Simulated assay, not measured.
Amino acid sequence: MRDWDDAYANSAHVPGSDKLPALWTERAAAYRAALKSFTPDIAYGAGERQRFDLVLPDEDSKGLAVFVHGGYWMRFDKSFWTDLAEGARYHGWTVALPSYTLTPAARISDITTEIAAAIVAAAARVAGPIRLAGHSAGGHLVTRMLCDDGRLEPAVYNRIASTLSISGLHDLRPLLKTKMNDTLRMSLEEATLESAALHLPRGPSPVTAWVGGGERPEFIRQSELMANVWTGFDVPTRLVVEPGHNHFTVVDGLKDPSSAITKSLVGLD
């Protein structure tokens, strides 16, 4: 029988991963301190964690890029990841980084609704096209914005130019077999509803599934699945397996304006 806990155990397979949260915190804080234009803690709802930060470019904004963090819907917040905005900011995009209520205080379906509200609120402040990106659980949340159950109002959905799911989770049903589900509290019904790969796409908005070549095989399978399934519905999809990266380093390229993953996010690939 397959060990599904091990299939999703990224930290157990990356030496030194216990030190990473402190490193992320330090890097993000240093980046915020150096920014010329940064607007923190903009409310998109009444909840304590229903806030997003905006990182503004030096020149006129080309549009809105949204980055949704991961952590298995159970941990972290926007403050860990501010420096990941640099690649898109450099290219002239305003970057929104939302936090959201974590499980078990919220269900995953509630978090999906929160992220839709965050995108709508950010879109009301920033004109132009919208480019979505998310890592791990965040990859799940941004692909859910493209599904046929219509979480975004048409005026906002129609502005989405592309979506980048980085090491995303697109079929949540295997997580029912993990110890994490004691916290996630998913039923089969909710896991099915919240799986983008089990939905029809709302439209032909392009999707890139990006994953590190050194990640757990389950994350590569999840990315392959998303790219494969929605191709059958005439959605422009792309799968990128980037060599040399694990689940934690695969997002580092978002800090680099010249990296392939940044170019994918901002439409320069």
Rank of each mutant, 00 (worst) to 15 (best):
G47A: 03
L146W: 04
P57R: 01
L141K: 04
P104K: 07
S99H: 07
L64T: 09
V229T: 04
E114V: 08
D3Q: 12
K179A: 13
T183R: 03
T94L: 13
I108T: 11
A34E: 09
D18V: 11
K263E: 11
L175Y: 01
E190L: 10
A105S: 15
H135V: 02
V66E: 12
H199R: 15
L193H: 14
T39L: 12
D148A: 15
C147P: 03
R151I: 09
K263S: 14
T143G: 04
E86W: 07
L239E: 12
K62H: 02
L198V: 15
A96I: 02
P21S: 11
D149Q: 13
P40C: 03
Y31H: 06
S258L: 11
K62V: 13
L239A: 10
P21L: 13
H140V: 02
D5W: 00
P98E: 07
E153R: 05
A9P: 06
S187R: 04
S37C: 05
G213K: 12
N10S: 14
A46V: 12
G214I: 04
A122T: 10
M74R: 11
V156P: 09
A85R: 01
Q222V: 13
N10T: 06
G139H: 00
V126I: 15
A121V: 03
E215W: 04
L265W: 15
I119V: 15
A260C: 06
A33I: 09
N181T: 11
A22M: 10
G253I: 08
A29V: 05
G267P: 03
L188H: 14
N246V: 06
E194N: 13
L64D: 04
A28Y: 08
V66L: 13
R159P: 04
T39I: 15
A155K: 04
T112D: 06
V207K: 02
T25S: 14
P98L: 05
L164G: 08
V251R: 02
N246E: 00
L102E: 11
A191W: 15
W24G: 05
R173H: 13
F233I: 07
S165F: 10
R221F: 15
D77W: 00
G87L: 02
P206Q: 05
R185Q: 15
L132I: 12
D148Y: 03
P57H: 01
P98N: 05
D41G: 00
V126W: 06
P201Y: 09
V120S: 15
G232C: 10
S61F: 13
G139V: 08
R75S: 01
Q222P: 14
Y44W: 07
G203F: 01
P236C: 03
D41Q: 01
G47R: 03
R221G: 11
A46C: 04
S258I: 10
L54G: 11
W4M: 14
D83R: 10
L239P: 12
T262C: 02
E114S: 06
E114W: 08
I160A: 09
R202Y: 05
D110S: 09
F80T: 01
L169N: 14
E153N: 00
L132Y: 05
R32G: 00
L20S: 06
Q50T: 07
W24K: 09
T192A: 13
T183L: 12
V235P: 08
G134T: 02
A34N: 06
L141D: 00
